[in-house]
Simulated assay, not measured.
Amino acid sequence: MSGPNTQYDPVEVAALDPEAIEQAVTDALAAIAAATTLEDLKTVRLAHQGEKSPLALANREIGALPPSAKAEAGKRVGQARGRVGQALKERQAALETERDERILVEEAVDVTVRVPRRPLGARHPISLVSERVEDIFVSMGWEIAEGPELEAEWLNFDALNIGADHPARQEQDTFFVEPAGSGLVLRTHTSPVQVRTMLEHEPPIYVLCPGKVFRTDDLDATHTPVFHQFEGLVVDEGITMAHLKGTLDAFVQRLFGDGIETRLRPNYFPFTEPSAEIDCRCWVCGGSGVLDGQSCRTCGGTGWIELGGSGMVNQRVLRAAGVDTDRYSGFAFGLGIERSLMLRHNVGDMHDIVEGDVRFSQQFGMEI
Protein backbone atom coordinates (compact mmCIF):
# COMPACT_ATOMS: atom_id res chain seq x y z
CA MET A 1 0.00 0.00 0.00
CA SER A 2 1.52 3.36 -1.06
CA GLY A 3 1.87 6.28 1.36
CA PRO A 4 0.22 9.73 1.12
CA ASN A 5 1.03 11.99 -1.77
CA THR A 6 3.11 14.61 0.01
CA GLN A 7 3.81 16.35 -3.30
CA TYR A 8 0.07 17.09 -3.95
CA ASP A 9 -0.32 20.73 -4.99
CA PRO A 10 -3.66 22.30 -3.93
CA VAL A 11 -3.32 24.87 -6.68
CA GLU A 12 -3.98 22.10 -9.15
CA VAL A 13 -7.53 21.68 -7.68
CA ALA A 14 -9.69 24.10 -9.68
CA ALA A 15 -11.85 25.14 -6.73
CA LEU A 16 -8.78 26.00 -4.67
CA ASP A 17 -7.00 27.98 -7.35
CA PRO A 18 -6.11 31.43 -5.89
CA GLU A 19 -7.44 33.18 -8.95
CA ALA A 20 -10.73 31.24 -8.75
CA ILE A 21 -11.12 32.09 -5.06
CA GLU A 22 -10.33 35.76 -5.69
CA GLN A 23 -12.84 35.82 -8.55
CA ALA A 24 -15.51 34.29 -6.26
CA VAL A 25 -14.86 37.00 -3.69
CA THR A 26 -15.00 39.73 -6.35
CA ASP A 27 -18.33 38.41 -7.67
CA ALA A 28 -19.76 38.17 -4.16
CA LEU A 29 -18.72 41.72 -3.22
CA ALA A 30 -20.21 43.10 -6.43
CA ALA A 31 -23.50 41.30 -5.85
CA ILE A 32 -23.60 42.48 -2.24
CA ALA A 33 -23.03 46.08 -3.26
CA ALA A 34 -25.76 45.83 -5.92
CA ALA A 35 -28.39 44.55 -3.44
CA THR A 36 -30.90 47.35 -2.79
CA THR A 37 -33.31 45.55 -0.45
CA LEU A 38 -33.06 43.04 2.32
CA GLU A 39 -34.81 40.48 0.11
CA ASP A 40 -32.17 41.02 -2.59
CA LEU A 41 -29.43 40.60 0.02
CA LYS A 42 -30.99 37.35 1.19
CA THR A 43 -30.75 36.01 -2.36
CA VAL A 44 -27.11 37.13 -2.60
CA ARG A 45 -26.28 35.41 0.69
CA LEU A 46 -27.67 32.11 -0.56
CA ALA A 47 -25.74 32.42 -3.83
CA HIS A 48 -22.35 33.32 -2.26
CA GLN A 49 -22.51 31.82 1.23
CA GLY A 50 -24.84 28.90 0.71
CA GLU A 51 -23.89 25.24 0.50
CA LYS A 52 -23.53 25.38 -3.28
CA SER A 53 -21.62 28.66 -3.46
CA PRO A 54 -18.06 28.63 -4.99
CA LEU A 55 -16.39 29.31 -1.65
CA ALA A 56 -18.38 26.56 0.10
CA LEU A 57 -17.35 24.09 -2.60
CA ALA A 58 -13.72 25.17 -2.24
CA ASN A 59 -13.91 24.65 1.52
CA ARG A 60 -15.06 21.06 0.99
CA GLU A 61 -12.00 20.31 -1.16
CA ILE A 62 -9.67 21.12 1.75
CA GLY A 63 -10.58 17.87 3.50
CA ALA A 64 -9.13 15.83 0.64
CA LEU A 65 -5.71 17.54 0.82
CA PRO A 66 -2.65 16.02 2.49
CA PRO A 67 -1.86 17.47 5.94
CA SER A 68 0.98 19.59 4.64
CA ALA A 69 -1.31 21.44 2.23
CA LYS A 70 -4.43 21.88 4.40
CA ALA A 71 -3.17 24.83 6.46
CA GLU A 72 -2.28 27.07 3.56
CA ALA A 73 -5.48 26.26 1.60
CA GLY A 74 -7.63 26.63 4.68
CA LYS A 75 -6.16 30.05 5.43
CA ARG A 76 -6.75 31.25 1.88
CA VAL A 77 -10.38 30.03 1.74
CA GLY A 78 -11.12 31.21 5.28
CA GLN A 79 -9.92 34.75 4.58
CA ALA A 80 -12.01 34.84 1.40
CA ARG A 81 -15.15 33.69 3.24
CA GLY A 82 -14.48 36.16 6.01
CA ARG A 83 -14.32 39.07 3.54
CA VAL A 84 -17.63 38.01 2.02
CA GLY A 85 -19.25 37.55 5.44
CA GLN A 86 -18.09 40.97 6.64
CA ALA A 87 -19.38 42.62 3.47
CA LEU A 88 -22.76 40.94 3.95
CA LYS A 89 -22.94 42.06 7.57
CA GLU A 90 -22.13 45.68 6.70
CA ARG A 91 -24.55 45.76 3.77
CA GLN A 92 -27.34 44.27 5.89
CA ALA A 93 -26.81 46.91 8.57
CA ALA A 94 -26.91 49.65 5.94
CA LEU A 95 -30.09 48.31 4.33
CA GLU A 96 -31.82 47.91 7.72
CA THR A 97 -30.98 51.52 8.54
CA GLU A 98 -32.42 52.66 5.21
CA ARG A 99 -35.56 50.59 5.83
CA ASP A 100 -36.08 52.03 9.29
CA GLU A 101 -35.65 55.59 8.04
CA ARG A 102 -38.08 54.95 5.19
CA ILE A 103 -40.67 53.49 7.57
CA LEU A 104 -40.42 56.52 9.81
CA VAL A 105 -41.28 58.72 6.83
CA GLU A 106 -43.86 56.51 5.11
CA GLU A 107 -45.70 55.45 8.26
CA ALA A 108 -45.57 58.75 10.08
CA VAL A 109 -48.83 59.65 11.83
CA ASP A 110 -49.99 63.22 12.12
CA VAL A 111 -51.66 63.20 15.53
CA THR A 112 -53.20 66.61 14.84
CA VAL A 113 -55.30 65.36 11.92
CA ARG A 114 -59.00 64.88 12.76
CA VAL A 115 -59.86 61.20 12.83
CA PRO A 116 -62.64 60.32 10.37
CA ARG A 117 -65.69 59.12 12.27
CA ARG A 118 -66.58 55.55 11.60
CA PRO A 119 -70.08 55.43 10.09
CA LEU A 120 -72.68 54.22 12.55
CA GLY A 121 -74.61 51.06 11.91
CA ALA A 122 -78.35 50.78 12.34
CA ARG A 123 -80.71 48.57 14.26
CA HIS A 124 -82.80 46.32 12.07
CA PRO A 125 -86.37 47.56 11.61
CA ILE A 126 -87.71 44.12 12.61
CA SER A 127 -86.19 44.64 16.06
CA LEU A 128 -87.58 48.17 16.22
CA VAL A 129 -91.11 47.10 15.25
CA SER A 130 -90.97 44.20 17.74
CA GLU A 131 -89.96 46.49 20.58
CA ARG A 132 -92.61 49.04 19.65
CA VAL A 133 -95.33 46.37 19.68
CA GLU A 134 -94.05 45.00 22.99
CA ASP A 135 -94.06 48.50 24.51
CA ILE A 136 -97.67 49.02 23.42
CA PHE A 137 -98.90 45.88 25.18
CA VAL A 138 -96.68 46.30 28.24
CA SER A 139 -98.20 49.78 28.65
CA MET A 140 -101.60 48.07 28.74
CA GLY A 141 -100.49 45.82 31.58
CA TRP A 142 -99.57 42.73 29.57
CA GLU A 143 -96.46 40.58 30.03
CA ILE A 144 -94.00 39.30 27.42
CA ALA A 145 -93.62 35.51 27.14
CA GLU A 146 -90.99 33.61 25.15
CA GLY A 147 -90.34 29.98 24.31
CA PRO A 148 -87.98 27.68 22.36
CA GLU A 149 -87.80 27.73 18.57
CA LEU A 150 -87.30 23.94 18.51
CA GLU A 151 -90.67 22.82 19.78
CA ALA A 152 -92.46 19.61 20.71
CA GLU A 153 -94.93 18.52 18.05
CA TRP A 154 -97.63 18.14 20.72
CA LEU A 155 -97.32 21.76 21.79
CA ASN A 156 -97.09 23.04 18.21
CA PHE A 157 -100.09 21.07 16.90
CA ASP A 158 -102.01 18.68 19.18
CA ALA A 159 -102.50 21.07 22.11
CA LEU A 160 -103.82 23.66 19.64
CA ASN A 161 -106.52 21.36 18.25
CA ILE A 162 -104.59 20.79 15.01
CA GLY A 163 -105.32 17.15 14.18
CA ALA A 164 -102.97 14.59 12.71
CA ASP A 165 -104.55 14.94 9.24
CA HIS A 166 -104.36 18.75 9.16
CA PRO A 167 -102.46 20.11 6.10
CA ALA A 168 -100.17 22.16 8.35
CA ARG A 169 -98.65 18.92 9.67
CA GLN A 170 -97.40 17.86 6.25
CA GLU A 171 -93.74 18.19 5.34
CA GLN A 172 -94.45 20.72 2.60
CA ASP A 173 -95.60 23.15 5.31
CA THR A 174 -93.51 22.29 8.38
CA PHE A 175 -89.83 21.66 9.11
CA PHE A 176 -89.68 18.33 10.98
CA VAL A 177 -86.49 17.50 12.88
CA GLU A 178 -84.74 14.21 12.15
CA PRO A 179 -84.82 11.39 13.00
CA ALA A 180 -88.34 10.64 11.83
CA GLY A 181 -90.67 10.31 14.77
CA SER A 182 -88.57 12.52 17.02
CA GLY A 183 -91.66 14.55 17.85
CA LEU A 184 -89.76 17.82 17.30
CA VAL A 185 -90.43 20.59 14.78
CA LEU A 186 -89.23 24.11 14.12
CA ARG A 187 -92.22 25.99 15.48
CA THR A 188 -94.60 27.22 12.80
CA HIS A 189 -96.10 29.93 15.04
CA THR A 190 -95.59 31.28 18.55
CA SER A 191 -98.83 29.69 19.76
CA PRO A 192 -96.89 26.97 21.67
CA VAL A 193 -95.69 29.76 23.95
CA GLN A 194 -99.33 30.45 24.78
CA VAL A 195 -99.86 26.80 25.71
CA ARG A 196 -96.70 26.79 27.83
CA THR A 197 -97.93 29.90 29.62
CA MET A 198 -101.31 28.35 30.39
CA LEU A 199 -99.61 25.18 31.65
CA GLU A 200 -97.29 27.13 33.94
CA HIS A 201 -99.54 29.94 35.20
CA GLU A 202 -103.01 30.19 36.63
CA PRO A 203 -105.41 32.74 35.05
CA PRO A 204 -105.78 35.64 34.72
CA ILE A 205 -103.29 35.61 31.84
CA TYR A 206 -102.42 38.60 29.64
CA VAL A 207 -99.34 37.82 27.56
CA LEU A 208 -97.78 38.80 24.25
CA CYS A 209 -95.66 36.12 22.58
CA PRO A 210 -93.22 37.55 20.00
CA GLY A 211 -90.62 35.43 18.22
CA LYS A 212 -89.15 33.79 15.16
CA VAL A 213 -91.12 31.09 13.33
CA PHE A 214 -90.44 28.75 10.40
CA ARG A 215 -92.44 27.65 7.36
CA THR A 216 -91.37 25.79 4.22
CA ASP A 217 -91.99 28.81 1.99
CA ASP A 218 -89.62 29.96 -0.72
CA LEU A 219 -88.08 33.40 -0.36
CA ASP A 220 -89.86 35.80 -2.71
CA ALA A 221 -91.23 39.33 -2.63
CA THR A 222 -93.89 38.53 0.00
CA HIS A 223 -92.75 35.27 1.67
CA THR A 224 -89.75 33.98 3.60
CA PRO A 225 -89.09 30.60 5.30
CA VAL A 226 -88.01 32.35 8.51
CA PHE A 227 -90.07 35.25 9.77
CA HIS A 228 -91.29 36.91 12.96
CA GLN A 229 -94.72 37.22 14.47
CA PHE A 230 -96.36 38.17 17.72
CA GLU A 231 -99.39 36.54 19.25
CA GLY A 232 -101.53 37.77 22.10
CA LEU A 233 -103.39 35.66 24.63
CA VAL A 234 -105.91 36.65 27.29
CA VAL A 235 -107.49 34.13 29.67
CA ASP A 236 -109.73 35.54 32.38
CA GLU A 237 -113.27 35.45 33.69
CA GLY A 238 -115.95 36.91 31.42
CA ILE A 239 -113.76 37.50 28.34
CA THR A 240 -115.73 38.09 25.11
CA MET A 241 -115.16 39.10 21.49
CA ALA A 242 -115.82 42.68 22.57
CA HIS A 243 -112.63 42.61 24.64
CA LEU A 244 -110.75 41.30 21.60
CA LYS A 245 -112.13 44.08 19.37
CA GLY A 246 -111.31 46.79 21.92
CA THR A 247 -107.75 45.47 22.37
CA LEU A 248 -107.14 45.40 18.62
CA ASP A 249 -108.52 48.92 18.16
CA ALA A 250 -106.25 50.26 20.89
CA PHE A 251 -103.26 48.46 19.38
CA VAL A 252 -103.65 49.59 15.75
CA GLN A 253 -104.22 53.21 16.80
CA ARG A 254 -100.98 53.15 18.80
CA LEU A 255 -99.08 51.48 15.95
CA PHE A 256 -100.58 53.10 12.83
CA GLY A 257 -102.13 56.35 14.08
CA ASP A 258 -105.19 57.83 15.73
CA GLY A 259 -108.56 57.14 14.15
CA ILE A 260 -107.60 53.76 12.69
CA GLU A 261 -110.22 51.16 13.47
CA THR A 262 -110.45 47.41 12.96
CA ARG A 263 -113.07 45.04 11.71
CA LEU A 264 -113.46 41.28 12.15
CA ARG A 265 -114.38 38.97 9.27
CA PRO A 266 -115.56 35.42 10.07
CA ASN A 267 -113.00 32.73 9.33
CA TYR A 268 -111.87 29.34 10.65
CA PHE A 269 -108.83 28.47 12.77
CA PRO A 270 -108.53 25.19 14.71
CA PHE A 271 -107.41 26.87 17.92
CA THR A 272 -110.11 29.55 18.12
CA GLU A 273 -113.92 29.37 18.01
CA PRO A 274 -115.42 31.63 16.79
CA SER A 275 -112.55 32.85 14.59
CA ALA A 276 -112.06 36.01 12.58
CA GLU A 277 -109.63 37.71 10.25
CA ILE A 278 -108.42 41.11 11.47
CA ASP A 279 -108.63 44.04 9.06
CA CYS A 280 -107.82 47.66 9.79
CA ARG A 281 -108.71 50.80 7.91
CA CYS A 282 -106.05 51.87 5.46
CA TRP A 283 -104.03 54.64 7.10
CA VAL A 284 -102.79 55.87 3.70
CA CYS A 285 -106.14 56.64 2.04
CA GLY A 286 -108.12 56.87 5.28
CA GLY A 287 -110.36 53.98 4.25
CA SER A 288 -111.65 55.62 1.07
CA GLY A 289 -109.72 53.30 -1.24
CA VAL A 290 -108.71 56.31 -3.37
CA LEU A 291 -105.51 58.30 -3.20
CA ASP A 292 -104.73 61.25 -5.50
CA GLY A 293 -107.58 60.27 -7.79
CA GLN A 294 -106.31 56.72 -8.21
CA SER A 295 -106.90 53.41 -6.48
CA CYS A 296 -104.83 53.24 -3.28
CA ARG A 297 -101.89 50.86 -3.81
CA THR A 298 -101.53 50.09 -0.10
CA CYS A 299 -105.02 48.63 0.38
CA GLY A 300 -105.73 47.78 -3.28
CA GLY A 301 -108.67 50.17 -3.38
CA THR A 302 -110.67 48.30 -0.71
CA GLY A 303 -110.02 50.76 2.11
CA TRP A 304 -109.04 47.89 4.42
CA ILE A 305 -105.79 46.04 5.10
CA GLU A 306 -105.65 42.45 6.35
CA LEU A 307 -103.45 42.08 9.44
CA GLY A 308 -103.86 38.54 10.79
CA GLY A 309 -106.10 36.06 12.54
CA SER A 310 -107.93 36.07 15.87
CA GLY A 311 -110.80 34.61 17.83
CA MET A 312 -111.97 33.19 21.13
CA VAL A 313 -109.66 30.45 22.38
CA ASN A 314 -111.15 27.05 21.56
CA GLN A 315 -112.30 25.27 24.71
CA ARG A 316 -110.36 22.17 23.63
CA VAL A 317 -107.17 24.24 23.73
CA LEU A 318 -108.03 25.58 27.18
CA ARG A 319 -108.79 22.10 28.51
CA ALA A 320 -105.55 20.70 27.01
CA ALA A 321 -103.68 23.31 29.04
CA GLY A 322 -105.60 22.51 32.20
CA VAL A 323 -107.79 25.64 32.26
CA ASP A 324 -111.25 25.42 33.83
CA THR A 325 -113.53 26.28 30.88
CA ASP A 326 -116.58 26.64 33.15
CA ARG A 327 -114.88 29.60 34.82
CA TYR A 328 -112.52 31.07 32.26
CA SER A 329 -112.63 32.10 28.62
CA GLY A 330 -110.11 33.89 26.48
CA PHE A 331 -109.14 35.39 23.15
CA ALA A 332 -106.03 35.15 21.00
CA PHE A 333 -104.68 36.86 17.93
CA GLY A 334 -101.58 36.71 15.76
CA LEU A 335 -99.90 39.15 13.37
CA GLY A 336 -96.73 38.98 11.30
CA ILE A 337 -94.05 41.53 12.14
CA GLU A 338 -92.64 41.58 8.60
CA ARG A 339 -96.13 42.22 7.27
CA SER A 340 -96.67 45.06 9.73
CA LEU A 341 -93.34 46.56 8.67
CA MET A 342 -94.13 46.25 4.95
CA LEU A 343 -97.56 47.82 5.42
CA ARG A 344 -96.49 50.60 7.76
CA HIS A 345 -93.51 51.70 5.65
CA ASN A 346 -94.49 50.58 2.12
CA VAL A 347 -91.66 48.05 1.83
CA GLY A 348 -92.30 46.32 -1.47
CA ASP A 349 -89.93 43.33 -1.36
CA MET A 350 -89.22 40.84 1.41
CA HIS A 351 -85.64 40.53 0.14
CA ASP A 352 -84.94 44.05 1.42
CA ILE A 353 -85.89 42.97 4.94
CA VAL A 354 -83.95 39.70 5.15
CA GLU A 355 -80.77 40.31 3.16
CA GLY A 356 -79.09 42.42 5.85
CA ASP A 357 -78.02 45.44 3.78
CA VAL A 358 -77.30 48.15 6.36
CA ARG A 359 -78.46 50.80 3.90
CA PHE A 360 -81.99 49.46 4.24
CA SER A 361 -81.86 49.60 8.04
CA GLN A 362 -80.37 53.10 8.06
CA GLN A 363 -83.57 54.49 6.55
CA PHE A 364 -85.36 53.86 9.83
CA GLY A 365 -82.82 55.30 12.27
CA MET A 366 -83.04 54.17 15.89
CA GLU A 367 -86.79 54.49 16.38
CA ILE A 368 -89.69 53.37 14.24
Rank of each mutant, 00 (worst) to 15 (best):
G336Q: 04
W304Y: 13
I337H: 01
A332P: 05
Q315I: 11
G334S: 12
Y328S: 11
M312Y: 03
L335N: 08
G311T: 14
R319S: 15
W304M: 08
E306L: 10
G330P: 04
V313G: 04
S310Q: 08
R339E: 06
D324T: 11
G336N: 09
W304S: 05
G308K: 06
L307I: 12
E306T: 09
R316S: 10
L307Y: 11
D326L: 08
E306M: 11
M312S: 01
R319I: 08
R339D: 08
V317N: 00
D326M: 00
G322V: 02
A332E: 09
A320S: 15
T325G: 06
M312A: 03
G303Y: 15
T325K: 07
L335S: 10
R327I: 13
T302R: 01
D324N: 15
G311P: 10
L335C: 14
S340Y: 01
T325S: 09
F331R: 07
W304C: 05
G303H: 15
Y328L: 11
I305Y: 07
G330Q: 06
S340H: 00
I337K: 03
M312F: 00
L307T: 13
A321C: 12
F333S: 03
R316G: 03
E306W: 10
Y328I: 14
A332Q: 08
V317L: 09
S310G: 12
G309K: 05
M312G: 04
A332L: 11
G336F: 09
T325I: 13
R319E: 14
V313N: 03
G308Y: 03
I305E: 06
V317K: 04
I337Q: 00
T302H: 00
S340K: 01
V323C: 10
I305L: 14
G308P: 02
S310F: 08
I337N: 02
D324F: 12
L307F: 13
S310C: 14
G303N: 15
A332R: 07
F331L: 07
